[in-house]
Nucleic acid binder design. Sequence first.
DNA 1: CAGCACAATGACCAACGAGTCATTATATCG
DNA 2: CGATATAATGACTCGTTGGTCATTGTGCTG
Lengths: 202, 202
Amino acid sequence: MPRTKKDVVTEFRTAEILQAACRVFAEQGFEQATMAEIARVAGVAKGTLYLYYPSKQDMYWAALGRSLLELAAATRLQVESASTAEQKVHAFIATKLRYFEEHRDFFRIYYSEVGRALCRHGRAARQFDDLYLEQVKVLDQALQHAVRRKAIRPIRTDAAAFALLDLTRSLVTQRLRGLSRASLDEDIEFAFDLAWKGIGHR
Amino acid sequence: MPRTKKDVVTEFRTAEILQAACRVFAEQGFEQATMAEIARVAGVAKGTLYLYYPSKQDMYWAALGRSLLELAAATRLQVESASTAEQKVHAFIATKLRYFEEHRDFFRIYYSEVGRALCRHGRAARQFDDLYLEQVKVLDQALQHAVRRKAIRPIRTDAAAFALLDLTRSLVTQRLRGLSRASLDEDIEFAFDLAWKGIGHR
DNA sequence: CAGCACAATGACCAACGAGTCATTATATCG
DNA sequence: CGATATAATGACTCGTTGGTCATTGTGCTG
């Protein structure tokens, strides 16, 4: 029998704390963020945090992981359900831009995590990396297929996939920094246009 | 009268320590790097570091700034001395890829610093940001000129410049992570090809 | 309402690391 | 060589912060 009352409250607190953590990690980065500050933002005492998450690291990975998996799943779904190569590339870019637009705090954490990929740090980072490379692979396979079908010119699809992921991130960054005055849809079309002409449609 | 003997030794020590700092900051990131570790790598005592740099921050910015200015200057020179838009874009990409290939530790620091651009942190970061945006501007102006001359199709040159900078970074990252088995020149041509077709030659 | 189980609290602790400075080593020069 | 100035050292200080836990608060149940 599920103890509904208790479970609901617990779930609520857990989410509430996670949201506060998201905010603080996004603003300060992992190292600069303090548990005291997260507690303050969440409106609870420091000790309470540890009733829901065993450590700062765990909290961080909880904040990052949830959205990361959601985004990865959405991207895979959208890309794989698109029929043509053109639509797949478009779906890849559009899904990510739209998701990040709606989850800005997540993007900041994601962005700073990417920045640390070149410094080695603990096992948990590998999990992030795996998911990151998996996203490249999704796009890579779509491109490989397109090359075989001669829908695009023959290029190094893996390198192109990696580049397109970074291109997408680039546009999101511009938006977040307030450097883009265009609408979201315009930015999506811009990125897609650049990408599609770049990899060479026929 | 320049006290040559003393000055030479001082200069040598300063450089030696800076190199060690570069190594450690590249491997660990700013936060994780400790002065003790830098001292160990440099082969001096911790206190000695403070005879040459007043603080960890200062040391970090010394390590980052020197190369950053050098790269910025080289890029500006190469881009401005190229005559056609095509050559300018090529020069931009090639200069950066070549420089980063030769200064991998610098790239790692640079890369992680870019990742923190979305979290606010002290005045000094603004200096980095200014230089970063200045690089975009160099490319932007070349693209604007090209658009006016109808050498490329009319696009948002600022967004394209930003994207090309990120595309370049993407290729360097792939090389550093060992994901590219191509030669440096091949990667340069690949990036240029993608970029040039993307922005649309005529 | 009394008693109880458990959630919340925040003072506290221990570890860590930036930065200091009294002491020691080294180089220069008369 | 001895005196003196300067460079190098590393044990130490002190503020910070992740994590703990004895105490306090809360709500449920009989």
